[in-house]
Design a protein around this nucleic acid. Structure first.
Lengths: 179, 179
DNA sequence: TTAGATATGTTGCTTAATGAACATTTTAAA
DNA sequence: TTTAAAATGTTCATTAAGCAACATATCTAA
């Protein structure tokens, strides 16, 4: 993709992410976003139809990054835990945005997409476990997803300033209990 | 100035500033800089003749910012001290770069420009003091410049991780002794 | 309700930046 | 010293982004 396209889109995503933390979505204007992004207003329309499309694509961008940070380290050995830490670090860095997206009014789209992503990320992890029975494996996956999603949501919304590493340590312990 | 020009130039300045901390100037290639800046190599030549010109303009950019941070707060009341803190904060943020530029081989241009800038910044400050005799005033200016330059150089090159606010406090005390 | 301001889409034209190619020149290693 | 790799400086056609202007549309306060 052309460098310029990447930069413009990224600038708009960054601006949207920042502004969403400070203002309700409904109050955001395209002019506001383009000003923050330091791009011409016309440039916006080269990439998005309206602010709803921007939001959708911005969410997708975030969740794709989240997924990448999950799957990214899998190749290396003993990195599942490390990959998980990377993920939690990413979440932590964008905590304000995720919190808004999780607790805001129009959060259905976000929650659904987030669970899909989580499923992909955690399934890979579960695969590595040698659970023979397919039903048992599915149960394990579902339980882990729910646990992960719930933990993340609790963490981001209550925001007790818990260190990502601490969270990972506990979560790791929970999902790796010998059964 | 066209937005695109500003961004390209800034990207190249940032890249150069970053790379100068890690490599000697002589080892820097234009290809390296443009890659770090994430701009097309051809774009470089739209703005600079060679890497020497980039260095020169990059230094000027930094020192102009330094000067601005000196003069910036003067308008408000009681802000000379605040302006000074802003300046020291800026220096601190770019400590690595300034250190290189101060201690590197080709530092003559940098040192000369830096003293010019300092003189402008500190002269304004000295003006506010009611020293009648022009000779005495000039003495005060020269002494203050030398003290400031020396202090900054010592601070940046030895880098004992001293807080900018601490430095400002001391320097403020030194140049404001009742005489 | 109305008037003034602000936001929205869209346009035409201009320009900076892009990627790819090319012939040199420089650098570094065999 | 020779040779391959990397860096340079330049060209070209293409395209994204820029700016300004415009007519609507929406919001907000008098």
């Amino acid at each position: 993709m052309d460098r310029r396209v990447k930069k413009s889109r990224q600038a708009l995503f960054d601006a949207f992410t920042k502004l969403m933390v400070e203002h309700p979505f409904q109050k955001l204007s395209i002019a506001m976003v383009t000003k923050e992004a330091d791009v011409n207003r016309g440039t916006f329309y080269l990439h998005f139809k309206d602010k709803f499309e921007l939001r959708e694509q911005c969410i997708d961008m975030h969740l794709t990054q989240l997924m990448t940070s999950c799957a990214g380290g899998i190749k290396e050995e003993f990195t599942s835990k490390k990959a998980m830490l990377t993920t939690f670090d990413y979440l932590n860095d964008n905590a304000a945005f995720y919190k808004v997206m999780l607790t805001g009014e129009d959060n259905t789209f976000f929650r659904k997409r987030m669970e899909e992503i989580l499923k992909v990320g955690l399934s890979d992890f579960i695969e590595s476990k040698t659970i023979k029975d397919p039903i048992d494996k599915e149960i394990m996956i579902q339980a882990t997803i729910s646990a992960g999603a719930g933990l993340i949501e609790w963490w981001l919304t209550t925001k007790t300033d818990l260190e990502p590493s601490y969270l990972v340590e506990r979560f790791w312990g929970i999902i790796n209990v010998e059964r």
